[in-house]
């Protein structure tokens, strides 16, 4: 249990660092389930242990992030900029988190993928090797999901 708590704290710190430094977004952890998030980016990693991380975010919040990161006006934020922004966000959160967990070891990160979530597609059921953290920011919501069986095993 202590391991899970420590992992959660490290993941939260990574999320805060990335969202504050790169996107000027100040997020608050939320106890509620995330509201419907239309955008999703995923990245997998392999090294001392394997896993995957996913960022789910509302379209409105993603646009705010893109505008803040690039100092853009609303009309300058294209689909391509949004895609770039969410992929860069998950890449940074994942890399930042892994160097907190294993500062002396190398992980190979995949190239992030991105897709839109259909409101008709059922959400995946949570499994025991998964952590979900939900945050509120800018009157919106986002969620980070981490799959890493080694980190969440009881032994």
């Amino acid at each position: 249990m202590a391991n899970i708590k420590k992992t959660e704290e490290m993941l939260k710190r990574s999320i805060f660092e990335v969202f504050e430094k790169m996107f000027f977004i100040f997020a608050e952890p939320s106890r509620d389930e995330a509201r419907f998030c239309q955008m999703r980016a995923s990245i997998s990693f392999d090294g001392p242990f394997k896993g995957e991380m996913q960022l789910r975010i509302t379209h409105d919040l993603l646009r705010i992030m893109a505008k803040n990161m690039l100092n853009f006006e609303d009309h300058e934020v294209t689909d391509s900029v949004e895609e770039d922004c969410i992929k860069e966000a998950i890449n940074m959160v994942c890399g930042n988190f892994l160097r907190k967990v294993e500062p002396d070891h190398i992980f190979d990160l995949s190239i992030p993928t991105y897709n839109m979530i259909s409101d008709e597609s059922p959400d995946e059921e949570r499994d025991q090797s998964e952590m979900r953290l939900t945050f509120d920011a800018e009157d919106n919501t986002f969620e980070v999901r981490l799959w890493a069986p080694v980190l969440f095993s009881e032994n």
């Binding site: 940074m92 930042n96 070891h105 190398i106 992980f107």
Partner: peptide, 12 residues
């Protein structure tokens, strides 16, 4: 400039 900032990666 990278997210991969482990000491081993920086040495590489």
């Amino acid at each position: 400039v990278s997210t991969e900032g482990s000491s081993e990666r920086m040495n590489d």
